[in-house]
Design a protein around this nucleic acid. Structure first.
Length: 585
RNA sequence: GUGCCCGUAGCUCAAUCGGAUAGAGCACCAGCCUUCUAAGCUGGGGGUUACAGGUUCGAUUCCUGUCGGGCACGCCA
């Protein structure tokens, strides 16, 4: 764990108010003291609504309570003055000297500035992407990847012990469909033509994998294809298969005909797709600590174990030949099947085992980042956890809404069935990693995202990514021309930084750790993106109004200390979002 | 039809879980480069927070209803 060391004014003021509050209320009564940054300068730097919250229990006028609280406030070297305002707000003014002297903490802590012990090293797992390894990642996965990766970085900075995990759905029917699809394409290469099912994987990458198998093994996997259509209605022999039942029959036939060779093709396509996925994500700046195999849950008997546990607790029953979980006991709309009539466990069954296993591995908090289309799935998973005696609140599910691409002001079409979707790789190639990562987290994750491709590509002031990066590059450029050591600025006397712009910037820099903490608390990376835009904006304004490389050395060094600190925080913030901070643009 | 999410400036979105005069960017209008990067800055207009009630010191935020949009309602994953 990285070390950090700097004062936390907000926490300090909360402590003062807490001391003060003890004079008015019984010590046993826990009061949540909330301190917020003010929006207007004449309201001070921090504001507290404690007096208004106490008005009812104390049966007193809020302004009167505020005065009492202020009188009982311990002295502090950081506190300039305190005022009662409005309906009973307590406004606190941070001393200018405290702001000015804060710069050295930023310059000393460098990349650890912004870190905190808010998370208290709590073991937390973030599971995200977890796309079926049945084809390339598309732009929808991209958003989950960007949000998951950024959130993980933010949580780590806020002092959590974070584990990033990708759940690999390598056991299900979808993998069988991909295996079959690839084999059929392979047969085509060997001049065995069976009408390609409409509901199989149509993408070009399937043909690519078939070619790879063909090149490596020639005709080795051409086994009695004439048996493939056994059990299928006459019609399927002349027209392409397009129902689930028929597709499942094809898969069953393929397994029978291929025997062990089916396993080979299955493993080949899985390895191929997973490798492609991992590579794609790595180039997107997204990496995982664990790739957790769904198949391993079956191999290690964890699915059977979890189901057995539910059975012992009487949450299962038989109906229509299947085994059902009583999820309605936990608020779900209907009960859910965990084991099908044919003996196969459902995806839900392995998911129960998976989530049970997460907590067995010691995670104190688990976050799942899911596409919003899975929201109906939440009650049954939480219900299963509860049934297993676990606290469902320890599982947080963050829903991510779809990203809709716009090109030239028009929606870019998306269709997964035909295979004509925009892949994450194509998006990266078109707009670049930095723009993609930033755009994905610019909006609250549970909101739809309109992704403007033209804007993301544009090298103009309209593009927020470049706007922030440009601020970073500008500082670098000035510091390069100064030609001194940034570390020497730690001792600069910053008392000359007194203009409203400078004091505003100083406060903005002080806010950064609180921003990271808030983003962590609310699972909201977009908070960081907004903050960076605001900081860049205040910097650009400062840049245009003030010269830094002035002849007067004390002033020069003070201003350079300020912009060097700004640069550090821009870099730290961009790093949290997986965006580069270039020195030249 | 039932459940969940959403509705804020012309457009895209914020608003620190109920706080002060609801904020940015884009677009529009008017200005700023012989000076550290104009991928920048300064100023201006723009709102009954979809609508109607309710809760209280105080509501974009919480509750109810209406309208409008999205998603989900498989022994798929």
């Amino acid at each position: 764990m990285t070390s950090f060391d700097y004062p936390n004014f907000k926490a300090h003021f909360i402590e003062l108010l807490c001391e003060s509050a003890k004079t008015l209320i019984a010590s046993g009564d826990a009061v949540q003291i909330e301190l917020v940054r003010t929006k207007q300068a004449n309201h001070g730097d921090y504001s507290c609504n404690l007096a208004m919250q106490l008005a009812k229990p104390l049966h007193k006028n809020p302004r009167e309570i505020a005065s009492l609280l202020i009188n009982a406030l311990p002295t502090s070297p950081y506190l300039d003055k305190v005022e009662v305002a409005g309906a009973g707000f307590i406004n606190l003014f941070l001393k200018s000297s405290a702001k000015q002297q804060f710069l050295r903490h930023i310059l000393q802590n460098k990349e650890t500035f912004g870190h905190s012990d808010f998370g208290q090293a709590k073991k937390i797992q973030v599971e995200f992407v977890s796309a079926n390894p049945t084809g390339p990642l598309h732009v929808g996965h991209g958003r989950g990847a960007a949000i998951g990766a950024s959130l993980s970085s933010i949580l780590a900075a806020a002092g959590f012990n974070v584990s990033r995990e990708f759940y690999v759905n390598d056991a299900g029917r979808q993998m069988d469909i991909l295996t079959l699809s690839t084999w059929l394409r392979y047969l085509e290469l060997n001049n065995v033509h069976i009408l390609f099912p409409l509901n199989a994987y149509q993408g070009e990458y399937v043909k690519t994998m078939a070619r790879q198998i063909h090149q490596a093994h020639a005709q080795r996997y051409v086994h009695q294809p004439e048996l493939l259509l056994n059990g299928l209605p006459e019609i399927a022999q002349e027209a392409a298969v397009d129902t689930d039942e028929q597709l499942d029959q094809l898969i069953a036939n393929a397994k029978k005909v291929l025997g062990q060779d089916y396993v080979y093709i299955h493993n080949f396509v899985l390895t191929e797709q997973l490798g492609d996925c991992r590579n794609d994500l790595m180039e997107f700046g997204v990496e995982f600590d664990t790739w957790f195999s769904e198949q391993s849950l079956f191999d290690n008997g964890l699915v059977a174990h979890a189901i057995e546990l539910l059975k012992k607790k009487h949450y299962l029953y038989q109906q229509d030949g299947a085994t059902w979980f009583r999820s309605t006991d936990f608020g779900d709309e209907k009960d859910r099947v965990v084991q099908r009539e044919n003996g196969q466990f459902t995806y839900f069954a392995s998911d129960i085992a998976y989530h049970f296993n997460k907590f067995e591995r010691g995670f104190e908090q688990v976050i799942n980042i899911w596409g919003a289309d899975h929201h109906g799935y939440i009650p049954r998973v939480k219900g299963a956890l509860q049934a297993l005696g676990l606290d469902p609140h320890k599982l947080e599910i963050a829903l991510v809404q779809f990203a809709v691409l716009y090109r030239a002001g028009k929606k870019a079409p998306m269709s997964t069935r035909s295979g004509e979707f925009v892949t994450l790789r194509e998006l990266r190639q078109e707009v670049g990693k930095d723009a993609a990562r930033f755009f994905y987290v610019m909006r609250k994750s549970d909101q739809h995202l309109d992704f403007d491709l033209d804007l993301a590509k544009s090298q103009s002031n309209d593009n927020p990514v470049y706007y922030v990066q440009y601020a970073h590059a500008r500082v670098s450029s000035v510091l390069a021309q100064w030609d001194g050591e940034v570390d020497d600025l730690i001792v600069a006397d910053t008392v000359v930084l007194t203009s409203p712009v400078e004091l505003g910037l100083l406060q903005k820099l002080i806010d950064f750790p609180d921003i990271v903490e808030m983003a962590a608390k609310e699972f909201s990376p977009h908070v960081v993106a907004f903050y960076l835009r605001e900081l860049a904006s205040e910097f650009h304004s400062y840049y245009n109004s003030t010269r830094f490389l002035v002849p007067e050395i004390p002033i020069q060094h003070a201003r350079l200390a300020l912009i060097a600190s700004i640069r550090q925080i821009l870099k730290n913030g961009l790093t949290l979002l997986g965006v580069n901070a270039p020195d030249k643009m």
